[in-house]
Design a binder for these strands. Structure first.
Lengths: 174, 174
DNA sequence: TATTGTTATACTCTATAACTATA
DNA sequence: TATAGTTATAGAGTATAACAATA
């Protein structure tokens, strides 16, 4: 199609190249699609919302290079000193084999350390390093002032809390 | 969730092998861990809830062997006849390259079919087969009577709707 | 015998580049 | 040249089996 010269018409995207009437059967318009009962499927919105929230988390905490999973590990280590890998991993729903590489990453950045337990020499007691504590503190501030604050702004504090309660209930009891 | 079949559930587990007093520094109890501010992190509960809901979806619709993603595709094809792969994939947040194998799976089970468009021979118009429509109808019934019904039972219809609205808002505007 | 951390492995999801055939 | 479908590929995330050290 050598239209380019005369042009001007094809702004960005010509969605409708002169439809031959009801050509392809029932094809409606060329615009947005009908979501149908997808709009009432809780799991669908749940997944899309989760992706958005994680995406925003990453953005907000980008200067510290922490994923939601890594953040949750640091948080748990801080609140639960003296625990081993199995306990931390189980609590977060991470399988022990998969937790190894994750810890390797955190440890190589000097955010936490493994210490052989004196009681049970099979266990690795996990501890936050000073740097780990510092990074966690900064991350918590970013999450609170940027990430969660944005959610508060969108939903309102009361709704945000109601949402959290319901999600926690599903995670717990469903 | 992690918990597969073998059940990692903290149910059966002797957490305290005769602690020698305050041995390992600050290690508190041997029971469940402190969640700390993880309990207030929306993203955390969002993710755990999403996994539970998808898990239940799989169970409820197991006789039809449909994943949430496959179900959403069938639903969309039914409501939007005459659309091509790119349009369906984009609407569901699936990348075109990844949509190919997914369609292959559905088409090999005779649930949908690709038809070359007469207007634009590059496009594949997607259509549900009769079997696809039948399976979709059965899936919708299972989802409504088992899956969503269980959520209604847990939260109550009003709360369930409020939850859905908030999740949709996050997915849309966040 | 059982458990902790680990390795190896595999399977799913997701993401990007590049090819082909059409336009 | 641009777009639709496709291929190849790479990277996360997640799952299971099995081994060494220790209990």
């Amino acid at each position: 199609m050598t239209v380019s010269k005369t042009a001007t018409l094809d702004a960005a995207k010509p969605p409708r190249p002169a439809r031959k009437d009801g050509a392809d059967g029932a094809g409606e318009g060329g615009g947005p699609l009908q979501m149908g009962e997808l709009a009432e499927l809780l799991g669908y919105s749940l997944k899309r919302a989760q992706l958005k929230v994680f995406e925003d988390f990453l953005r907000c905490v980008a200067p510290l290079q922490l994923t939601p999973a890594q953040f949750s590990v640091l948080l748990l280590l801080d609140k639960n000193p003296g625990r081993n890998q199995t306990e931390i991993a189980n609590t977060l729903g991470i399988l022990r084999p998969n937790f190894v590489a994750m810890l390797d990453g955190l440890e190589s950045r000097d955010l936490c350390a493994r210490m052989r337990s004196t009681n049970d020499r099979r266990s690795h007691i996990l501890v936050l390093t000073d740097k780990g504590r510092a990074v966690l503190a900064r991350a918590k501030k970013l999450v609170a002032t940027k990430h969660e604050a944005r959610l508060d702004e969108l939903l309102g504090p009361a709704n945000r809390l109601a949402l959290l309660e319901m999600l926690a209930k599903i995670a717990r009891e469903f």
